[in-house]
Design a protein around this nucleic acid. Structure first.
Lengths: 266, 266
DNA sequence: GAGTGGATTTCGCAT
DNA sequence: ATGCGAAGTCCACTC
């Protein structure tokens, strides 16, 4: 990710106000090449499959991607009015002075027909895009979420402190469970590895020396790398799945962005 | 719907391989005019809001609609990789030789930043589209669905016959319920009105004269127009909601397209 | 405005 | 292949 922008750009074709025949020839080639195609003009649509729908004449933009997905976009509305998921059979033809585009899917059986009688433009290209998409929340956000609602990890869990200083470092979340046992939570934004488990163990040991009650250690992360599984069990520690998305969603609902706000509210 | 195609076409602007400055000026005007804009080129994206995400450099197409919705499409994948729902604040600027497009939404607070360093093309227009979108299944499809799974209307309901001839006409669905009572169903593709209720009453009366058990009458439709409500109650008839989508979904799952197939399977 | 349920949901991961 | 659950779900409808 964040790799430098390539210096060479992929080529593209574009037709402005083309005749239907001209567009049909381009689209046939483009569909065969699995190009990324955008068609803008006046069209009507018919869909038959999981349901049926019809859409009268109007000016819309159609996107056909190399994976065989299709979407027809009206001037307003986030979602496409008609669409077809990937892996479609694409065909184009001229029928009764209409440029007819068909996208068929075998399973489930469904068909989308888009008929243009007038075109603003048609573009065709093969975009180069090898970047990784990364969706995340910060470890701080995860901690905020957990502090604002400890029950998302376990019923009856309550917060005592967070970022609590102990000898080996800082404990992300420090609380007590429904049975009154102390709970030490190590948060990880990505899948937790053996290093996270060992770090948690050090915290648990440190807490064990200072408190007189039982101490539980929990790794809370979106996943647990295979190597960490055995270590976790051997050290008597636990793992609880905690996804960035769940945390982000909670923070959104609660409208809590910072820990300070939590303490003001509670 | 299906209204004749208008003879005059709305105008559009088309920039091919524009300089960033040139594109910025166009986009500022387009955003102010609430145009329908498509931008194609090399970009990177950052999103912060309900979650956070980053997407490195790659060639993608961005659609900005007049309602303030934004979507960034990669070469493959039905869904946009980044997006913003309608009612966004849009802004465009030149920063560090990048064309930066910002789409901000106040509630929930979230921001999408799209930075282009190279453009294939930019188009801007104001499409005219006043057509109605109609999603439907035929009454025949609804009947097929109900026959293939009467329980979608009520547990224990069984089919005896369909399109059954009685004196006033044809009964859509004829069956018996869990208590052995005869059930007469009148299907409607759209919201049922008083006419549908009265028609059902005639069927129920006709059946009442020929059978010795209690007869129930049910209007099954996606909705019930307000006027029909009172008539329904006065005549001792019932209404059950039955949506075209539920029927279409069932037909799809069961892979039953025609009644004949049902009898072959049963 | 918040809450609820549906969608031609789509999509990914588990079985 | 199939089924189940999550999603920055979106969206329409109800309270």
């Amino acid at each position: 990710m964040q790799e430098p922008s390539p210096t060479s750009r992929s080529s593209f074709l574009f037709l402005v106000k083309p005749h239907l025949k001209e567009a049909k020839d381009l689209l046939q080639d483009s569909f065969r090449r699995r190009d990324f195609v955008i068609i803008s003009g006046n069209c009507r649509c018919h869909y038959h499959g999981r349901a049926s729908s019809s859409l009268g004449w109007g000016e819309r933009a159609t996107i056909v991607k190399g994976d065989g997905s299709v979407q027809v976009h009206r001037p307003v509305g986030y979602e496409p009015v008609n669409w077809q998921p990937p892996r479609c059979m694409l065909s184009v033809s001229l029928e009764d002075s209409l440029l007819c585009i068909r996208a068929q899917r075998p399973k489930p059986r469904e068909t989308l027909e888009i008929a243009y009688d007038d075109l603003m433009f048609v573009t065709s290209c093969k975009p180069v895009d090898r970047a990784d998409f990364v969706l995340y929340v910060s470890e701080e956000q995860m901690r905020d979420a957990l502090v604002s609602r400890p029950s998302m990890l376990e019923d009856g869990l309550e917060v005592i402190d967070f970022e609590r200083k102990v000898d080996p470092g800082f404990i992300d979340f420090y609380g007590k469970d429904a049975q009154g046992r102390v709970v030490v939570v190590e948060l990880k934004r990505k899948s937790a590895g053996k290093d996270a488990v060992l770090q948690l163990k050090r915290y648990v040991d440190a807490v064990n020396e200072t408190v007189g009650v039982a101490v539980r250690g929990i790794v809370a992360a979106p996943g647990l790398r295979s190597g960490a599984q055995g270590t976790l069990a051997a050290l008597g520690l636990e793992y609880k799945k905690l996804t960035p998305r769940a945390c982000a969603q909670l923070l959104q609902k609660r409208k809590i962005k910072k820990i300070s706000e939590f303490f003001e509210q509670s």
